[in-house]
């Protein structure tokens, strides 16, 4: 019988709340465990006073949870988090370590990989786990134009990061799992803390976070002005949706900010409905919306590439169509 594979998912929490991406990765880990038939999913949660959070993790697919609760871990910092995780990994020797590619995960993962001298694949769009324990990691390159397979044949653990929005969480209300309390003092020594995270400043962006919206109205360079951009905002508001943008629109300063940029260097989204206006359809934007339910695009230019990636193509001026659409939606709701 093959050795039982162990898949770890590092859980990110901010102010005691589990990051959505961690639950998405946990969901994928469950699927991998099923693929490999004989694998165990372990969640590892670091933080301060996060017991209640850890209790919830089995419901999202963890067979087992390592909980490191220590006041020094209240805020993420790479010295502290990587020291704790390195010691745990060296002790437990998992086969696979998965980390959400959030801002902190993007730093924690390569730090750990370098400490462990192992391989890391970034921003995986998919993962496959064979029964022999080989993890195939699919990574995007060149702004999503190319997808490459990555393997880590010799070193262990095999490590990967996954961007938010790529996988879906699972909910298993009945499931229970073992919670293992670890002792922070034996995993982290004060002498090795060189950097101090002094505070977290939350700048909560207004409106619905784009990753969670069922409806996204996105605009690009073709929107032309801040005034026109308001039209997208009004439309999104009708659905409690979010407004997304392309990099050129972001650079023009019309948009809600960087957290609303969709594409290979921004957010990956999967709304039920995406409506794009004034977007030409460069591949680095399109890779960020490819899993959307329905894609409708409005562009004056009949030849715009976005039409090749859309379910419904409206070759018209958004300034004519969207106000009319807004009026009809408002009528329909009353």
């Amino acid at each position: 019988m093959e050795k039982k594979q162990v898949i770890w998912v590092i859980i990110e929490q901010v102010q005691g709340k589990t990051a959505a991406v961690s639950l998405e990765v946990l969901g994928k880990a469950c699927q991998l465990a099923a693929e490999a038939a004989n694998a165990q999913v372990v969640a590892v949660a670091l933080g301060s006073a996060i017991g209640p959070l850890a209790q919830q993790l089995p419901k999202h697919g963890a067979d087992k949870v390592f909980l490191v609760d220590d006041p020094r871990l209240e805020l993420y910092q790479n010295d502290t988090y990587s020291s704790v995780l390195r010691r745990l990994i060296e002790r437990e020797r998992p086969d696979v370590v998965l980390i959400g590619a959030s801002a902190s995960g993007e730093e924690l993962a390569p730090t750990l990989a370098a400490q462990l001298g192992t391989g890391l694949a970034a921003h995986c769009t998919n993962l496959r786990l064979a029964a022999d324990g080989t993890l195939t990691m699919l990574v995007p390159a060149f702004g999503g134009q190319v997808i490459g397979e990555i393997f880590c044949p010799v070193q262990r653990p095999q490590m990967a990061t996954i961007k938010p929005g790529v996988f879906s969480p699972v909910g298993l209300a009945e499931r229970t799992g073992e919670i293992v309390q670890e002792d922070g003092a034996s995993l982290l020594y004060d002498a090795e803390i060189r950097l101090r995270a002094t505070r977290l400043v939350v700048e909560e962006p207004p409106g619905m976070p784009i990753e969670q919206a069922d409806v996204i109205v996105a605009g690009g360079w073709g929107i032309g002005s801040r005034e026109n951009w308001r039209l997208l905002e009004e439309l999104a508001k009708e659905f409690n949706g979010a407004v997304g943008c392309t990099r050129p629109a972001l650079d023009q300063g019309w948009t809600g900010g960087e957290h609303t940029m969709i594409g290979s260097s921004g957010k990956t989204v999967r709304p039920k409905l995406y409506l794009g206006a004034g977007i030409s359809g460069a591949a680095h934007h399109m890779v960020g919306i490819k899993d959307s339910g329905v894609i409708i695009s409005v562009n004056r230019d009949k030849t715009a590439p976005i039409f090749q990636f859309s379910d419904y193509c409206v070759a018209a001026d958004f300034r004519d169509v969207l106000p009319e659409l807004l009026a009809q939606i408002r009528r329909a709701k009353h």
Partner: peptide
Amino acid sequence: MENGYIEVE
């Protein structure tokens, strides 16, 4: 960070 920043010294 996703919704802000962490200050580090």
